[in-house]
């Protein structure tokens, strides 16, 4: 299994009180599978996604990537896993403002030592970024920035794409275009996709849907 969660629980302390976000969450995502993660605001969708990316540790339970339990790894190993195996797409794009589009696009792949210039070129072409390669993030529109972020996530051909409301900051038409590109490219690389969204319409376009509600995964 590409990504597997077993009996995961996560909470946080706020004002001296423990708030349980969710518990007993188990799920899996297979390679080539596109899964939507939905739920109300505050249900813990993003938190679960972060646990999957190894950015945070669950209070209980395990997240396994390619069968490797992330919780057992040291910081450095998890970082390596992130840069080599995972592609992240955020709602706020989170490009690196000091680097031009070309460098942003290839940044993670180069960090991971997996740069494939031909593939990066293809990505740029497919994402319509070729004329923008020398620009800086602040000079791009939101849709353009998110296309760069998608390119960055895919440039290293990771096995798993984690996306957090990738079109949340975009208008509907732009969002649709971006989503088409994302889904198309993910399908092309054969990677698994776990995407947080609150849009039913978007969720319907994916293979499967997981729903967080009341601190547990429904269905």
């Amino acid at each position: 299994m590409l990504l597997e969660g077993r009996d995961i629980a996560k909470g946080y302390d706020s004002g001296g009180e423990h708030v349980q976000v969710f518990s007993g969450v188990s799920f899996s995502v297979a390679s080539g599978e596109a899964v939507a993660l939905t739920g109300e605001s505050g249900s813990g969708k993003s938190t679960l996604l972060h646990l999957c990316a190894g950015l945070d540790r669950p209070d209980r339970g395990q997240v396994r990537l390619d069968g490797v339990p992330l919780g057992a790894l040291r910081d450095a190993s998890r970082a390596r896993l992130r840069r080599t195996r995972i592609g992240l797409v955020f709602q706020q794009f989170n490009l690196i403002p000091s680097l031009p589009v070309a460098a942003n696009l290839s940044f993670q792949a180069r960090l991971a030592g997996r740069e494939d210039t031909a593939w990066t070129g293809t990505l740029a072409e497919r994402l319509g970024l070729t004329p923008l390669l020398r620009r800086y993030p602040e000079q791009l529109s939101g849709g353009q920035q998110q296309r760069v972020a998608i390119g960055r996530a895919l440039a290293g051909r990771p096995g798993l794409i984690l996306a957090d409301e990738p079109t949340g900051n975009l208008d509907e038409a732009t969002g649709d275009t971006v989503m088409d590109l994302l889904l198309g490219l993910v399908a092309e690389t054969g990677a698994g996709l776990l995407m947080v969204t609150h849009s039913r319409r978007l969720a319907d376009r994916l293979d499967r849907r997981l729903r967080l509600s009341g601190g547990a995964l429904c269905r």
């Binding site: 990316a53 910081d75 450095a76 970082a79 390596r80 992240l88 993670q108 960090l111 991971a112």
Partner: peptide
């Protein structure tokens, strides 16, 4: 932090 967090997320440790 906003500048460093993405780099961290993309695969660098905080120590690095």
């Amino acid at each position: 932090l906003p500048q460093l967090a993405p780099v961290w997320a993309l695969g660098l440790t905080r120590a690095r």
